[in-house]
Design a protein around this nucleic acid. Structure first.
Lengths: 218, 218
DNA sequence: CAGCATCCGCTTTGATACTG
DNA sequence: CAGTATCAAAGCGGATGCTG
C-alpha cells in the first residue's frame, strides 16, 4: 500500500499492483475469469486469507476488479476484472516470457495447478495455421485435473477439464508438458522421459511460441 | 526473498524481481546504463541504503546484474545489467504503458528525476520518420536538469544534459511535458498552461507513441 | 566520499483459529 | 462460503557508524 512517491509511470504502476500477491490475483482472474473467494484461495496456494481479503479490497479501490453479486441461483459474490484490470494482460505476458527459463529447474516442493499451465499456453502460444479446422489438445498433468487447449482461428484458448474429442492427449509431469508445448522437447524425447500420449502427433505443430513476431516490433 | 512456491512462470518471475524496489533498480540501470551505488541512490529517492545493498546482492545472485570494477582512473564499482537483466525491458515497457494514465493526476509531493522522463520517452516513443535526418529535442523539466531526446533512424534515444543544437526546446513542469510528448496536449494548449518553447514546433511530429503497432500483434 | 553494516521502531506478512 | 480476529515473525524505513 505504501507508495514509492515517484512521478514515474513504472513506480505508479507498482504502487497499485506491486504489492505481494496482487499480480497473482490478477493472474487468477485473467486465466479463470470470474472467481469466487474460495476459487481464488485454491488458485493461490500459500496466501493467508486475511491478505486475500485485504488485497481484494485494495484492487477494488484501485479499479482493477469489481465485486459482483451473482444472480440467483448462485447467490455468491464474484470477483471480476474491470477493463483496466484486463489491460494488465500484456504485463502478465511479459512476466511469463521472462520467467519461462526459470521453469527448467523445477522444485519438487512447488505447488501446481492445471489452469496455470492452461493460462501460460493461452498467453504464450498461437495457432500456427489459422485457416485449418479447429482442434483440441488435452493435457493431463500427473496427479492433477486435465485442461484442454482449443486451437482455432489463429489463437489458443484453454478450458478446464477434458476435451470431447481431442486430437491429441498428453499425460506427463508439468515440466515435461511445458517442454513439449514450447517445442524445446520433441515428442520422442519426452516419451523417453515418461510422457504418455495418444492421438495425432502432428497436432503439436499447430501451436507455436509467440515470440519471433514480437521481437521484430520491440 | 520469500518464494511463492508455485510452479508458474509468472510466480517464478516475481520471486526474482517482485520484491519491493527491485524493478525500480532495474529501471535505473536500463535508463542510465552502468551506475555507481550513489547514482542508484539518487535515482531511487526513498530507498534505505541497507535495502539497496541487499537488493543489489540479490539481483546479482539471480543473474540480473553484475558488479564490475571500473578501470582506473575511475576506481569505483559499477553495477551493470546482464543480458538477462536487459531482457526485462519489455516488462518495464508494459508496466509503463499501463501506468501512463496514472500520470494525469500528479501529486505535488512526488519526487521527480529528469532521466525518468527520458527513459519513458525511450520506451514508449518511436521516430515516425526513420528516413528523415536526425534531430534533437531538449526537455527542461521545471527546476530539474535538462534531458535530450535524440530522434533518428526510427528510434528515440535519450541522454542526460542539454543538446548541442536542438531543433526544439521545451520547458515546463513534468506533467505538461508528458502531455505534449504523448500528443494528448497540443503545443498551443500547453503554452496556455505555462509551457515555454523555442525552435521548430514540427519536430514534435517526429515522435509518435508506440502502441497501434503493438496492439495488432497482441 | 563511495559502499556498505548495524540498530531500532514500525508495518506488513503469514499461520491459525474462529464466525455469520 | 466469505470472510474477521489474533499474534508471532519477517520486512521495511530512517538514522547512524564504520571502513577503504
Amino acid at each position: 500500500v505504501r507508495s514509492y512517491g515517484q512521478y514515474c509511470a513504472v513506480a505508479k504502476t507498482l504502487d497499485v499492483i506491486g504489492d505481494r500477491w496482487n499480480l497473482l490475483i490478477v493472474r487468477e482472474l485473467l486465466i479463470r475469469g470470474d472467481c469466487r473467494y474460495t476459487d481464488l484461495q485454491h488458485g493461490l496456494p500459500g496466501i493467508a486469507t486475511n491478505l486475500l481479503a485485504d488485497r481484494l479490497r485494495e484492487l477494488e479501490a484501485a479499479g482493477v476488479l469489481t465485486r459482483e453479486q451473482a444472480p440467483p441461483p448462485i447467490a455468491t459474490t464474484l470477483f471480476r476484472l474491470t477493463e483496466r484490470g484486463l489491460a494488465l494482460r500484456p504485463v502478465l505476458r511479459e512476466l511469463l516470457r521472462w520467467g519461462a527459463p526459470l521453469m527448467l529447474e523445477p522444485d519438487e516442493r512447488d505447488a501446481f495447478r492445471s489452469h496455470w499451465l492452461g493460462g501460460a499456453a493461452e498467453l504464450a502460444l498461437v495457432d500456427s495455421a489459422p485457416e485449418a479446422p479447429a482442434l483440441s489438445i488435452e493435457l493431463r498433468p500427473s496427479g492433477e485435473t486435465p485442461v484442454t487447449l482449443e486451437v482455432a482461428v489463429g489463437a489458443v484458448r484453454t478450458r478446464d477439464g477434458s476435451a470431447d474429442s481431442p486430437a491429441l492427449v498428453l499425460e506427463a509431469p508439468p515440466p515435461l508438458l511445458l517442454g513439449v508445448l514450447t517445442g524445446q522437447l520433441g515428442l520422442d524425447e519426452a516419451t523417453e522421459h515418461g510422457l504418455l500420449w495418444q492421438g495425432d502427433a502432428d497436432a503439436l505443430a499447430r501451436v507455436r511460441l509467440l515470440g519471433a513476431v514480437e521481437a521484430q516490433v520491440a
